[in-house]
Design a binder for these strands. Sequence first.
DNA 1: TTATTCGGAAATTAAAAACA
DNA 2: GTTTTTAATTTCCGAATAAT
Length: 261
Amino acid sequence: MSTAVKRACDACHRRKVKCDGVNPCRNCSASQLGCTYNAIPQKKGPKGSRAKVISELRETQRQTSLSAKVQTRLNGMNSPPSNSSLAPTPGLLTPETIKECIEFFFANMYPTMPILHRQRLEQQTHFLEHTMDTYCLLTSLSAFMMLQPGMTMPGSDPYSLDSMPGANIVSATMLLEETLRVRKSYDYLESSTLNTLCTSYFLFGCYYGLDMHDKAWFHLREATTLMHMLGMNHEDTYSQYDRIEASRRRRLYWLFFVTER
DNA sequence: TTATTCGGAAATTAAAAACA
DNA sequence: GTTTTTAATTTCCGAATAAT
């Protein structure tokens, strides 16, 4: 049982073979290699507060159990756990959630992103079962709102899930996935509307809030491309819309422009 | 056959937490 | 302060694969 050498030379380290630690070492001499000890050893041991792996595992486990609870809470016990079709999940987006998320949006977010029109949005909520474009807008809006500080879990909650840290993130993630899933069911590239673009913006916001910056930028760029496809960079395209629609589109264009920097 | 490669077990090390 | 626990890094065993 030979004891491990204090430091293996660069070649032995790469080759994962036993090094005798002298210079030149036996392996290097045998294979006529230059024997060097240039590699700078990394610092060993945990980094940060009790390092990360165990806390990551704990966090995912916590999220999984929360996810189950939120799922039953949001759609009242009788939902299939995995929906493989592209249809909206019944009961996931409750009217209560929609109402509170719209409320929160216009109370807190509208000043910095005045891209929706309250009356028109509320009118649309009556048809969301049949218009996927609207459904996606509302799921993504709700997801985005759930991630905002100060937003509470909608609905009265017998298990006080709203006070549980992470519950919002779990439901936001579920709504986010729902948006992406349902969005596959129609060709939003071909028939882009204001809703499509707003949805992309909220997707951007969600991913950004979840620190998934690559995906966030993907949705932002996708929307920017869509806007160019729609000719929103030319003032004369706005004349085909009524005043309110045109103003929201202009604002959205500039919001994207400013966000992309 | 011998030589080489590389997955991963075991050892080593150091930071953080627990304890006295 | 010392000890224990935890986790990041390193060494290198030995099975798999390649070369001869």
